Simulated scan of single mutants.
Amino acid sequence: MENVKFIKNGISKLPPGFRFQPTDEELVFQYLKCKILSYQLPASIIPEINVCNYDPSDLPGNYGEQDRYYFSSKETKYRNGNRMNRTTKSGYWKATGSEKKVIRISSSISNNNVGLAGIRKSLVFYKGKSPNGSRSDWIMHEYRLVNVESNSSHQKYVKEIGDWVVCRIFMKKRRNVDKYSVSIMNQPRFFDFMRVHNAAPGPMITSSSSSTSTEVSSSDQTSGYIC
C-alpha cells in the first residue's frame, strides 16, 4: 500500500470530509511502533515536532480540529537522567492520574513473554513556573512504546523502546453552567402564534393618558398560547 502524505511544512492537513481519529491501540502499534522500528507508516499524517518548544496554543496545526497529534522526541531534562523535559516558554506540563497500559487486543499473550505494549500518560498544562503555575484546560496524552518481559521467577520488567513518543493534545471542554441557568433552560417556552398571524398595525399594548395602568388591546385578548 502506498504511503499517503498529508503533511506540509510541519502541519497535517486532511481533505474536506476526512477526520483523523485513531484509537490508543492504533496510535501505539500502527504509528509509534512503525516510527520507532523504521517501518512504513499507514499515512504521513503526524508531523515531527518537539512539543515542549511550544506553548499548546502556539503549536502548528488545524485549530478547527479538536485533537492534534505529534511525534515528539524524548528530550531529557538532565544530561545523565531519564526524566523528560516538559517545560515550555511560559509554562510546563504536569503528569496527572495513573498511567494506562495499551495492548493489542488481538495478540496472544504468553506467560513468559508479554511482548510490546504501550503506556499512556496524561498531563495538564500549567501557566507560569513550577510549582506555582496556574492550571489550564490543555490536556496531553503521551504514548510510549515499551517491551514487557518476564523472567524465570515470573517477575515482569518494563523497558522503554525508541527515542519517540506520540502526543495527543486537546482542549478540555468546560461545563460551567450554574443551577439558575439550567432551571431557566428547562422552563417551558410560550409562543404567541395568534399574534403573528392576526397582528394589526400599531402597538399591541397601549397606555391610557388618564391612568398609569396599561391596557391590552382586543387583538391580544383572543390570542392563543401553546407550550
Rank of each mutant, 00 (worst) to 15 (best):
M1K: 15
K5T: 13
N9V: 01
K13Y: 02
L14E: 13
L14N: 15
L14Q: 12
L14M: 11
L14V: 03
G17L: 02
P22W: 04
D24E: 08
E25D: 07
L27V: 09
L27A: 08
L27Y: 05
L27Q: 07
L27M: 04
V28Y: 05
L37V: 11
S38G: 11
Y39Q: 14
Q40G: 11
P42R: 07
A43F: 10
A43Q: 13
I45A: 00
I46D: 01
I46C: 04
P47A: 03
E48W: 01
I49R: 09
N50G: 04
V51E: 02
V51K: 03
C52R: 01
N53V: 02
L59W: 01
P60K: 06
G61Y: 00
N62P: 03
D67V: 03
D67Y: 07
R68S: 12
Y69H: 06
Y69V: 04
Y70R: 01
F71H: 11
S72W: 01
S72D: 03
K74G: 04
K74C: 11
T76F: 06
R79H: 11
N80Y: 07
N82C: 04
M84G: 12
N85I: 00
K89H: 10
K89E: 05
K89M: 05
S90R: 03
Y92A: 04
K94Q: 13
A95D: 06
T96H: 12
K100T: 08
V102Y: 00
I103Q: 13
I103L: 07
I105G: 08
S106N: 10
S107H: 15
S108H: 07
S110N: 12
N112W: 06
L116M: 11
I119N: 13
R120L: 10
F125P: 07
Y126A: 00
K127F: 05
G128K: 09
G128C: 06
P131D: 01
G133T: 04
G133W: 02
R135M: 01
R135F: 00
S136V: 02
S136D: 07
W138Y: 15
W138S: 11
I139L: 05
M140K: 05
H141R: 12
H141P: 05
R144G: 06
V148R: 12
V148K: 12
E149Y: 00
E149G: 08
N151Y: 00
H154I: 08
Y157I: 02
Y157Q: 11
Y157P: 05
E160Q: 06
E160W: 01
E160F: 13
I161S: 07
G162T: 00
W164D: 00
V165S: 11
V166G: 01
R168G: 03
R168N: 08
R168A: 04
F170Y: 14
M171Y: 13
K172S: 09
R175T: 12
R175V: 08
R175H: 14
V177A: 10
V177F: 15
K179C: 13
V182H: 14
S183V: 14
N186A: 02
P188T: 01
F191N: 13
V196Y: 13
V196H: 15
H197I: 06
N198H: 05
P201L: 10
P201M: 00
P201H: 09
G202I: 12
G202T: 11
P203T: 08
P203H: 10
M204L: 09
I205V: 06
S208L: 11
S210K: 15
T212N: 15
T214G: 05
V216S: 02
S219Q: 12
Q221R: 10
I226N: 14
I226P: 09
